[in-house]
Design a protein around this nucleic acid. Structure first.
Length: 145
DNA sequence: GCCAACGTTGGC
DNA sequence: GCCAACGTTGGC
């Protein structure tokens, strides 16, 4: 079991779009490092869903329901696949979003990729980091999809 | 709107 | 292969 964090701008594709749709093809990734991370995702991996730009923070939990395959939105279908997608499904909303400010203020999260590589849109999360963020997000009533 | 970080492109 | 120019992301 691996843990990941994916970013999305809430204006473009936010948690609400995701839960309404029920399942998302995570397409449009055009960064090699992010692409490599996508390709490492396995069925059942846990994925933190992060809103960037507007009220930045982790808002929900998702899971990998289909492993990587060539990105159908990439125009050149004749060339060897260069970009890939996975499919994700929502698991639950966090009762309270874990804001970027909270993450930055937490010493145990000082090494998290979110801070160290602020522009990367798909990144691995350590199990301890994952557990802590989930715990921080679960204070209060449990969220639901 | 501004700026820092950083990835990509293209000239040499 | 190096590096300057440029574009994009994302925080504030």
């Amino acid at each position: 079991m691996n843990y990941w964090l994916v970013k999305s701008e809430p204006d473009t594709y936010g948690w609400h779009h995701f839960t309404k749709q029920g399942r998302a093809v995570w397409d449009g990734v055009r960064n090699y490092q992010a692409r490599n991370n996508l390709r490492l995702m396995q069925l059942g991996d846990q994925v933190l869903f992060y809103h960037s730009i507007l009220n930045p923070g982790v808002v929900g939990l998702a899971t990998v329901v289909r492993e990587s395959y060539p990105d159908p939105t990439f125009p050149d279908a004749s060339a060897p696949a260069r970009w890939f997608v996975v499919e994700l499904e929502p698991v639950m909303a966090l009762a309270k979003p874990v804001t970027l400010a909270q993450i930055k203020a937490e010493p145990m999260l000082a090494a998290i990729g979110l801070i160290k590589q602020s522009r990367l849109s798909v990144m691995p999360i350590r199990p301890d980091e994952f557990e802590l963020i989930l715990k921080m997000g679960m204070t209060g009533e449990a969220g639901s999809v």
